[in-house]
């Protein structure tokens, strides 16, 4: 079952590798050009890699809550028809609680930054 995936992975990796080899033959130069970053024609004053201000970090926390919830969601999806109404009610009460959190975060302005 996983053998197919491994063959697929090998096939695509070989293709990507072959493309790189091909490009070495067809490109005007084999080695990459060492360039400065594009800054509208100016020289960089510092390295761009730095502590980036990801202003959406409150959303990441909210996302984490739901992402963990997906752990239950997938198995639940597979068995809900067998377990009956109880499972549906339990899951959606749980999701309802999470959604209440989302609306609270929305009201607090977690989805807006500028």
């Amino acid at each position: 079952m996983y053998l197919g995936i491994l063959v697929l992975l090998a096939a695509v990796l070989v293709s990507v590798g072959a493309l790189y080899v091909l490009s070495r033959l067809t490109a005007v130069a084999r080695n990459p050009l060492v360039s400065r970053p594009f800054l509208s024609g100016w020289v960089p004053e510092e390295h761009a890699l730095s502590r980036y201000h990801a202003r959406y970090y409150p959303v990441t926390l909210l996302f984490l809550a739901f992402d963990v919830e997906m752990l239950f969601m997938y198995p639940w999806a597979a068995v809900v028809s067998r377990l009956g109404p109880g499972a549906v009610i339990e899951m959606f009460v749980f999701l309802g609680v999470l959604m209440a959190g989302v609306f609270w975060a929305w009201r607090e302005g977690a989805f807006k930054w500028a």
């Binding site: 004053e45 730095s50 201000h53």
Partner: peptide, 19 residues
């Protein structure tokens, strides 16, 4: 090329500044 310096942002956080 130098490394990024720091400066306070609008919210008072100490953050890296790029030009």
């Amino acid at each position: 090329i130098g490394l990024a310096g720091q400066e306070e942002d609008r919210d008072g956080l100490d953050l890296d500044v790029l030009h």
